[in-house]
Design a binder for these strands. Structure first.
Length: 429
RNA sequence: GUGGGUAUAGCUCAGUUGGUUAGAGCGCCAGGUUGUGGCCCUGGAGGCCGUGGGUUCAAGUCCCACUACUCACCCCA
């Protein structure tokens, strides 16, 4: 137990951390371009926030929350989802008083008690985006476009963007009734899950994977045929914008989503290389949620994007992310006097802003070179008795094997001239 | 919560019909080179064979349970 991590969790080892850094950099970059700023919320919230926000009857609330009671007797829950906390923070901090719409993003862990499988964990990391205060379909399109461009930039292909509209409180009940009427005569032929869905959430009848249910569902009334004029118009304009933005999407009337708060636009981005859990990004509009959580009636839209799934998709596809920065200069020594001088030399280089390192295991010179190679050092300064006496080091460029004599006092300035100039991290292509 | 598969070294895996001190490749450390990495050669370290029970003269191997991992269902990122 001491040496195993809790079920459904993941370690990010030093060998992989650079991938996370790279993805996080791309998140900072694209959100800045689209005008979204970061919102950080606690890792746990009052249980009631999720229960009310996501919906009492949803799977997440009924069986997947990490809920505990603290010493003050409060019921708290590890962040089970990103939107409800964002809405809570928006209301609590009076963000509605700032320039509208409020466009925020978040990046952090989400916890759900589920059976782990490919692309599903009990703790995973979501990059999410939320925009509060506008019902303009251009905003729906902006958000879908953001997610799509983000994934494309990282080098993913084999992506499918599915969009649908779930209607609003005016038209959804009409469709719901039509669904119930349609399925009632077929009820006996449905699977057990679907009989439960019939009672609880008829929309879910549409995306059952059971063959018999599927055949019945194929002829079921489609929400898109029941949308009210406003919702139909919203959806039409969304499709128009997406086409103008160059997003390759398809209308999929069977995508539903598991949270109660969705209205109108819902969408998913699927990656073909993932297993059964192929949705890398999912989201939609929630025009009733903010009022439902105690705010003024305010429309909203957002998505969640799973980073572990994203990394998995990149790996399946063989995308190579830029490797981490390596050591600029490694100080290798021969003899005791040099070995004692090395730490201060390295400290000096680090003060000058260089990435410098040295051996701590008393390795032979050969061993040190090997270690430096392993660290992908660009240069190795060899310091022995002769060099120490002369006040200089033999600096070897690892890629070419070429050696140069450099005075110890000039090591930092010499090195600076060799290294490429610092690049702006968010330089555009 | 339900169902299938798997569990041997840090990693990927061998291990005959049960039979003595459990192996390989990669990785790690060292040597070959008295001061020079990558390639090559040699050596070394590293294994309660997932855990517990059972069958047997004898279990890594057969049986049971548990746990973990894994894939799928439900649902979701």
């Amino acid at each position: 137990m001491l040496t195993t991590r809790p079920r459904g969790t993941l370690d990010v080892t030093p060998a992989e951390a650079f991938k996370w850094h790279y993805v996080e950099e791309q998140i900072r970059r694209i959100t800045r371009q689209y005008g979204y700023t970061e919102l950080r919320t606690p890792i746990f919230e009052h249980t009631e926030l999720f229960a009310r926000g996501v919906g009492e009857t949803t799977d997440v609330v009924q069986k997947e929350m990490y809920t505990f009671t603290d010493k003050g007797g409060r019921s708290l829950t590890l962040r089970a989802e990103g939107t409800a906390p964002a809405v809570r923070a928006y209301l609590e901090n009076g963000l509605e008083a700032e320039a509208q719409p409020t466009k925020v993003y978040y990046l952090g862990p989400i916890f759900r008690y589920e059976r782990p499988q490919a692309g599903r964990l009990r703790q995973h990391t979501q990059f999410g985006v939320e925009a509060f205060g506008s019902a303009n379909p251009a905003l729906d399109a902006e958000i879908i476009h953001l997610a799509w461009v983000f994934l494309k930039r990282l080098g993913l292909s084999g992506l499918t963007v599915d969009v649908n509209s779930l209607g609003c409180p005016a038209c959804r009940p009409v469709h719901r009734q039509a669904l119930l009427d349609y399925f009632r005569p077929h009820a006996d032929g449905l699977c057990a899950d679907c009989r439960r869905r019939y009672a609880q959430n008829p929309l879910r009848l549409l995306d059952c994977k059971n063959g018999a249910c599927r055949r019945v569902a194929a002829g079921a009334p489609v929400i898109l045929d029941h949308l009210c004029d406003e919702c139909a118009g919203h959806f039409a304009r969304l499709r128009q914008y997406l086409a103008e933005f160059g997003v390759e999407f398809r209308v999929n009337p069977w995508i539903v989503r598991g949270f109660d708060y969705y209205t109108r636009t819902v969408f998913e981005i699927i990656h073909e290389g993932l297993g059964a859990q192929s949705t890398v990004c999912g989201g939609g509009r929630y025009d009733g949620l903010i009022a439902h959580l105690g705010g003024k009636p305010t429309p909203g839209i957002g998505f969640g994007l799973g980073l572990e799934r994203l990394l998995l998709a990149l790996e399946k596809q063989g995308v190579r992310l830029p490797p981490p920065a390596a050591v600029d200069l490694f100080v290798a020594t021969v003899g005791e006097a040099a070995a004692e001088r090395a730490p201060a030399l390295v400290a000096e280089l680090r003060r000058e802003g260089m990435a410098a390192d040295l051996d701590y295991l008393g390795r032979s010179l050969k061993g040190q070179l090997k270690y430096a190679d392993r660290l992908r050092a660009r240069f190795v300064a060899v310091l022995g008795e002769a060099e120490l006496a002369e006040g200089r080091a033999r600096v070897k460029e690892m890629a070419t094997g070429q050696e140069t004599e450099v005075k110890l006092g000039e090591l930092a300035s010499w090195l600076r001239r060799q290294l490429p100039p610092p690049q702006g991290r968010n330089a555009d292509e």
